[in-house]
Design a protein around this nucleic acid. Structure first.
Lengths: 228, 228
DNA sequence: AAACTTTCTACACGGCGTTCACTACCAACA
DNA sequence: TGTTGGTAGTGAACGCCGTGTAGAAAGTTT
């Protein structure tokens, strides 16, 4: 790696980190090329040497955040014993909410649509991180499947209900999981997501005094509905 | 109502409807005072005679949409027999998803954060619509409560777990519902919301061929978990 | 017809993403 | 070592944006 390449990579990294700093301080709307450049003592145009467009920068940020987020969740699960699926699910869920509440701007960037007219590209690098997250959920459901199968195995799903990408990955990770189990994964994901999304966007606060308590209750319901 | 007031109300309504039209065509980011004015043959400044600021206009739009949305859900539930709570829940859920998928920009406006730096006001008129939606969910849970109570009545909730506003409303609507039932309402809301939010923001499409099928399965799970 | 109120325009300010011609500068080659 | 070529960055411009303000035009009231 030549000196030039190193400097170039450092500048690109600085652009991203300054963008994150701006987002911490002023929400996703505070990410502007001009503000980033100002903060770095540059001109806005200079950033175009590193990212073709503002959306490309956002896309790179999302991928970074999503991966860091997946790391967090992986770690949270790994901290619980492997033979206690229920504990792992609850740890995962709480870590998910913790991250969303502590870093709402990041959550909006990854799971929402905070920049107007921003169109996530077809083949986003964030998809890889999303697949990591899917794997996490799949691990949990697979661990619970021996008990959950009784309730869900008769669900009418086939491999055609998933994109070939997902079907391929799941069969590689957990060959024992039937289509009904994969469908269950997605529903579990949705269930983990629902209350947190409502809370982050301010729809729980007007009704509830302690959102954590309700989310924990939902996690317990979830664990119960998996037969654990 | 004087002629002036009528004209004024008409203009305000036209501003909102043009804003909606722009949003249909170009997403929430296409709502700009200048574009609205251009479309109406006016100047941007003129709009300030009707709304103090762009955010006020957005707030009014959200309230309108949220109310229309609540109407839709109310109607969907009312179309099913009153003594069939399961059918009502499923009808409500499907109508919810239908609306979200058919009008994604509206969904983002109501449940997301589509305009950067837009801060929902403390006492938004949308809260009233949200309470209507809460009532809808509460109606469904209350109808299911006779069967669901066995599973959830022992949950450790009290009236202190809700804001006094919500607690007051619920006790007025459904005096028979205990705190555990109200908590269940919120979790049901979250569950209805989760998969739909993921889908609207494009997180389901890369994994799933027919989102409706999975959402319907989730609704059936939900109904089952309510003992219906 | 005069006085007053409401409505809207014209213009300005600063901020935005993006483009483009141009200038420093650094690295390698003669 | 001196020259050359690519690279990083500038600065001005374009057309957007929300938001104010001063003043004109139109309608309403007396």
């Amino acid at each position: 790696m030549t000196r030039r390449e190193r400097l170039r990579a450092e500048t690109a990294a600085e652009i991203k980190s300054v963008a994150l700093k701006l987002m911490y301080e002023g929400g996703p709307g505070a990410i502007s090329l001009r503000a980033i450049a100002r903060e770095m003592g540059m001109t806005a145009g200079a950033i175009y040497g590193y990212f073709d467009t503002r959306d490309d920068l956002i896309t790179a940020l999302i991928a970074d955040l999503y991966n860091a987020f997946a790391d967090t969740l992986d770690a949270a699960r790994a901290a619980e014993p492997e033979d206690d699926p229920a504990a792992r699910i609850i740890a995962h869920g709480l870590a998910f909410r913790r991250w969303a509440i502590d870093y709402p701007a990041e959550f909006r960037l990854v799971y929402g649509d905070p920049l107007p007219d921003y169109q996530p590209p077809e083949q986003s690098p964030a998809i890889e991180a999303e697949q990591r997250l899917c794997k996490g959920v799949a691990d949990m459901v697979a661990a619970a499947w021996p008990r959950a199968a009784a309730m869900y195995a008769k669900d009418d799903f086939s491999w055609d209900d998933f994109t070939s990408v997902l079907a391929g990955l799941i069969r590689e990770w957990h060959p024992e999981l039937p289509p009904a189990g994969v469908a269950l994964c997605l529903r579990v994901w949705g269930r983990l997501h629902g209350l947190v999304a409502l809370e982050v966007y301010g729809h729980l606060r007007p009704h509830v005094t302690d959102p954590t308590k309700h989310y924990l209750a939902e996690l317990h319901d979830l664990v119960r509905s998996l037969g654990l």
